[in-house]
Amino acid sequence: MPGNGREEMSRATGIGSDRSAAVAVAVLAAAFAIFFILPFAGLVDRALDEGGTWDALRTSEARDALVLSLWTSSVTVVLAIAFGTPVAYLLARGHFPGRAFVDALIDLPIVLPPTVAGVALLTAFGRRGLIGEPLESLTGYSVSFSSVAVVMAQTLVAAPFYVRAARSGFAAADPQLERVAYTLGASRLRAFFRILVPQAGPALAAGIILCWARSIGELGATLIFAGNLQGKTQTMPLAIIQAFEGSSLGLAGAISLSLFLLVVALGVLVVFRLVAARGGEPR
């Protein structure tokens, strides 16, 4: 805070008024903070008031949603790593025609509304989709309304977060290190795992966390492409939606699932910060 003398002087000379600007900033910031904190406070307050939060989590509906969410999001992360890592490497280190195009394409699902992604998946892999229709007539198998569809929806929406993080991690690593590793006899694969991956480690971890958090929270694409079947495609966000539409879970169930997701999200943020702080350490 400015001293009185300075305050008077600034008034006297009419040059700006530090104090009112500071007050305005403080008020705006406080209002913003309150707006962000209140809903979560409400959630916690309601969960405590209602009681039975823990019981609601133990209903079959909630448990199914929880289990499905956990395993599908884990599979999504594994798929993102398996298929996304080579893509990220090529985007960071490769020179091939259309690299800028692929780069932009990877970012598309990040900015695209997930519902659009769901519709798009449906038109490609759905019963009457581009691939889905011939596939079903040939093999009799359809992915729609199965857990496979859940994983597909989550992968489309969440994997780009991993690819993007991995790409910047690879790009930020010094290529000279790998070149020297080659002269020391390391194969490309050994140089990748022993030299590049450790350097990009924090970025990869951050990508994995983001990807997993995004798949846990995925709603729109899953709802449209995979449907909302308990135990098969009803992940936690979908179960919450269902609760408001009158499922046996009720509001209490919705609240307890929400609370669970909130705790997970907070945990993710903390881990993310820790990883980022480690990555930012001076070399």
């Binding site: 010094d174 000279q176 290190l177 070149r179 020297v180 590793a181 002269t183 030299i195 450790p198 350097q199 480690g201 070399r283």
Partner: peptide
Amino acid sequence: GYVVQDLALFPH
């Protein structure tokens, strides 16, 4: 034995 200007030691 290739030694580059910035040495490229493996930091980890």
